[in-house]
Write a protein that binds this DNA or RNA. Structure first.
Ligand SMILES: [Mn+2]
Ligand SMILES: [Mn+2]
Ligand SMILES: [Zn+2]
Ligand SMILES: [Zn+2]
Lengths: 149, 149
DNA sequence: TCAGTAATCTGCAACTCGTGCAGACAAACA
DNA sequence: TGTTTGTCTGCACGAGTTGCAGATTACTGA
């Protein structure tokens, strides 16, 4: 994703207007590698701009996706996630806490695929599932078990 | 997925009962490579058993997934798809008509992954997007047709 | 064979995530 | 400034899925 200033120009070049809501969302997305949901962006945005609507967050994300400035990531179930990182990369999802992180896979577009059968396929989306280090270390809690009696 | 008869035994071994609804759904799934949705299974089931409820389809699919007899496939957006093929395989999705087909990818678990950083990841799920031969050759391609089983 | 019981089925409400819509509002521009 | 658009907000609605409760049915054991 380009910088907030560059996005402002890009929006105006398309005949779209610049608004405080959009500028705020540009700032919240810039350099954000947490793959936020619309809801999480809405919460953070509401902190700086009480009254901003969730509808506006969805609209702005849709605009940015349509312009190719961000990508919509789907990791199977749960709300959509938005990704200002448009590098050729893939994702690993913690099935315990839902965290999504970037991974870079080499040779992904040289995989030997059997069964395509004329199907015109483009680059694959690869999602690894697993458990993040944080969840792995807290899954064996020596203290504070919630279900002991 | 095992045969309907074997699934009957597996259900009974778990203290679950065998019902006409379950038997019908076992038959509709067996050898089915169309990655059907709950809704499409419900439509086909309703022909043979008017009055069967969509709720029962969802419940039975959830049971089968919990038992590892089928897999739930998510291809990003739209309803969940259910897959009696439990081989180690991946999927290609037609973005025009929604068709999902199996592909077999060699070397998928030997990919060089950068950024894992201690993240304990298992085998990846790979989804190719593209256009199927039918949609590519048709001048009036079906859009998310109801012909899926 | 036939109750007793426990699991199941069905119908509907409710829930999550996202979109359509309409009227108030505000950015761009002369 | 005033006019023209595009935008924001709030709400209703839609798709997909699950929770729930009462009626129903499959198994069990006499
Ligand atoms: Mn990413
Ligand atoms: Mn499959
Ligand atoms: Zn985690
Ligand atoms: Zn197609």
């Amino acid at each position: 994703m380009r910088s907030p200033d560059q996005l402002t120009d890009a929006f105006r070049a398309r005949g779209l207007k610049m608004t405080p809501q959009r500028q705020l969302l540009f700032r919240l997305l810039h350099g954000n590698d947490t793959h936020p949901t619309a809801e999480s962006l809405f919460e953070r945005a509401s902190h700086e701009m009480p009254g901003i609507s969730l509808r506006t967050v969805y609209q702005t994300m849709n605009d940015l996706v349509a312009m190719g400035e961000i990508e919509q990531v789907s990791v199977g179930g749960g709300p959509a996630r938005f990704d200002p990182n448009t590098d050729d990369h893939h994702h690993v999802v913690c099935d315990t806490c839902g965290t999504v992180r970037d991974v870079y896979v080499s040779g992904a577009d040289q995989l030997a695929i059997d069964g395509l059968d004329g199907f015109d396929a483009v680059a694959p989306a690869i999602v690894f599932h697993g458990e993040c280090t944080q969840c792995a270390s807290s899954s064996n809690p020596p203290h504070h078990s919630t279900k002991e009696n």
